[in-house]
Every structure is written in structure tokens, then in C-alpha cells.
Amino acid sequence: MTPPSTAPLISLTWTDHVTGTEGYLVVDRLVRGVSSGGLRMRQGCTLAEVAGLARGMTMKEALHFDADDTGVRYIPLGGAKGGIDCDPRAPEAYGILVRFLRAVRPYVESVWTTGEDLGLSQDLVDRAAAEAGLVSTVQAVFPLLDDEAAARRRLADAFAVTVDGIGLDELVGGCGVAESALVALDRAGVAYRDARVSLQGLGTMGGATARFLSRAGLTVVAVADVKGTIANPAGLDVESLLAARDAFGTVDRGALRPGDEELPADAWLAADAEVLVPAAVSYAVDAVKQASVRARWIVEAANMPVLPDAEALLARRGITVLPDVVVNSGTNAWWWWTLFGDIGPDADEAFAHTRRAMRSLIGTVLERAEADGCTPRAAAHALVADRLPVMAERFGWYA
């Protein structure tokens, strides 16, 4: 029997005829003919980066598949990702986004469901998608729904929910990241009040994570944005920093309190904290920078923030990396739990479901890592290797 190919199913590069900007789409795998994965925009984005993210999405979907649970409506999809090599703050960025979506429209209509990722908000993606002639960025999944109209209303209603000024769609991912960190603390017997946190990024994922960890009783001692690191060993006022952010997660320094310090951009790495949360860019921790880390756990809220050679060195130092494919999978899962009808458009229900699911998933990964004597990332890969053949046999690649 020929082993399955590890190459992506679809890989394409698009060149904008107006600016020469390149964009990329990689569909790593299909399940029932559909894949899932966001669209990012950042200067320096590459096809290799998007391919790695697409493979990560395949893993995230598979990790949320439970072959024994027949009572759920959401059946995980395949993995995909899109990327555009452009600074999202550039004046021409929106036009490029519209033209990219117009060019890949056949894929969005048939096989690729997408949404916000690094550099883009869901509102912006939705507006550009409408201008590009798309009904929805997740319309490829509509044929799999029992009641499309009801499902679309449910998702729209969920996106309209806000909690203390922040949209539910922004909060669920951070809820999942925070729960992952809390499970690690629980297993180690560390009281929340004794745990300090340092984060890179106070945007969608980082901001929500900071809120949930702070409200759980942890002390946030440092956050970093494009202007540098804001630190206070006695603890930062998370809510005031969240209220002082712009659309890209940059904090207005006028909101800082006495005792808050402004430090260099990489100072968040060396913070005196138990938990480190990279929640901004990929490749943030390399083999050199890892030497600065003093934390006990690195919780990957961003996609691919810790490079493999850095992770190996961290493991030798007794520092555990909780991998992105597990930790930040809650946002994607929440879309589908809501659309397929496993939960309704209610914040309390969404948070409770996310906490249960993420606590179970991270617990399973850590138990597998302990049993196999490996890293949590290796354990997650092993779980995916177990589940993908079952998904393929039960549901098939194509609709």
C-alpha cells in the first residue's frame, strides 16, 4: 500500500497585478470536501509559512475529533491557510485584500472556509469578502449544514455578542489559551495567585488571554507590542491597557500608571514570570532568544512562535512548551461549535464549552506526553497520527 503523501493538496501563489504583492493559499487536507483556516496579512509572509500553518490547521481540526462521541454535530474539517505578504497598516492593504479574495473566490466558495488571522480583523475580512462577491467566508461548509439559514443566524448572533466591551469572537480564543495555562498550573500544583504572566501581543488573542488569566487570579507583569514592552513586577492593570489599545493591539502609553515601565521589545522574554505567552508573530523565540527565558511554561497563543531548535533547547532546561496546535485551537472550534449548533450564541455557554473542551484536550496531550516520555508537541502529533486515518475512513477526503 502506498503511504499517504505529506504534500499539501493545493498550493498556489497569487501576484497582485496592481502592486506586485504576493499572496498564498495552501489547502493541506480536505475532510468531506472542506478545509478550515484563517487568512493572515503581514509583511514578509511566505508560502512556506502558510504551508506550515495549513498543516497546523489539519492538526487542530483532528485534535478536536472524538471518534467515540456520536452526540456532537461538529465534525472536524481539513486544514488550510491563506497569507498575504503586505503590511496591514499600508494604505494599499485593503485593496490588495479585496483583489486576493476575488482571485481565490472559487476556492472560498467550494473548499476553503476562512476568517481573521494575524493582521486582519473579522470585520475587515467580511467587508472585503462582500466586495469580492462572496456570500460568506465560510460558505464552503454550508452544504454540510442541516439548516443553513438557522446556522448563519446563529453565527451572526454570536459575533454580535460583546462582554465588557470585547467581542465574543475575540474572547473565546483567549479563553482557550488561558485554560491551557491553568491546566498546566493545576497539574503542577501551582496556585494561581502565585503565578506571574508575560505576554507578547495584546491584540485579539493576547488581549483576551491576558483578561482571562488576570481574572483567574494570575498577575500579568509584562506585555509587549510594536512599541516595546510594558512591565510592572507588582502587576499591570490589564483592563486599562485593553481599553487603551488601537485596532492593531498597540497600547497608548498615556494610559500607563505609576510603576509601569517601558522596556525594549524583547524584554517580555526575560520577565520574571512562571508563564510566557507569545501571542503575536510566528518565529518569536529562536535558539538565541530562548536563553533569555526564565519561565516554567511557554503557552503558544500565536501560530509557530517557538522554532524547533529553540524548543529542543528549552526542553533541556526543563521549560515546557504547550504547542499552538492545541493551545490556540479554541477560536476555530468555536466557529464550528456555533455554526453546527453544538452551542448557541451565548457568552456563558461559549466559555463553558471552550473551557471543558480545552481542559480535556490539553489534559489528554499532557498525559500522553508523560506516558510516552516526550514533549507535549510530540504527544499532539501522535494523537493526530492516531485520529487522521479514522477521520479519512469514516468521512473521506471529498464530499
Rank of each mutant, 00 (worst) to 15 (best):
91 P>H: 11
193 R>S: 13
189 G>R: 08
171 L>H: 09
15 T>R: 14
129 A>C: 06
123 D>V: 03
385 A>I: 10
213 L>E: 01
134 L>Y: 04
388 L>N: 00
280 A>E: 08
35 S>K: 00
112 W>S: 01
138 V>W: 01
153 R>E: 15
53 L>S: 03
373 G>W: 08
332 N>F: 04
82 G>F: 09
225 D>G: 06
270 A>L: 06
78 G>I: 11
364 T>D: 15
112 W>R: 03
234 A>M: 01
387 R>D: 05
330 G>R: 09
370 E>S: 12
326 V>E: 07
386 D>Y: 10
163 V>N: 07
113 T>I: 03
52 G>M: 15
203 G>D: 08
365 V>M: 00
62 A>I: 09
79 G>Q: 09
332 N>T: 13
234 A>C: 03
149 A>T: 02
240 S>V: 13
2 T>W: 00
198 S>Q: 01
229 T>R: 13
147 D>A: 09
290 Q>K: 10
79 G>F: 14
243 A>V: 09
83 G>N: 07
273 A>Q: 06
369 A>S: 11
91 P>Y: 07
121 S>Y: 03
35 S>E: 08
158 A>N: 06
40 R>L: 09
95 G>V: 02
291 A>M: 04
261 E>W: 12
355 R>D: 10
327 V>S: 03
56 G>P: 10
372 D>C: 04
156 A>S: 08
38 G>F: 09
364 T>H: 13
13 T>N: 05
394 R>S: 02
167 G>D: 07
99 R>Q: 12
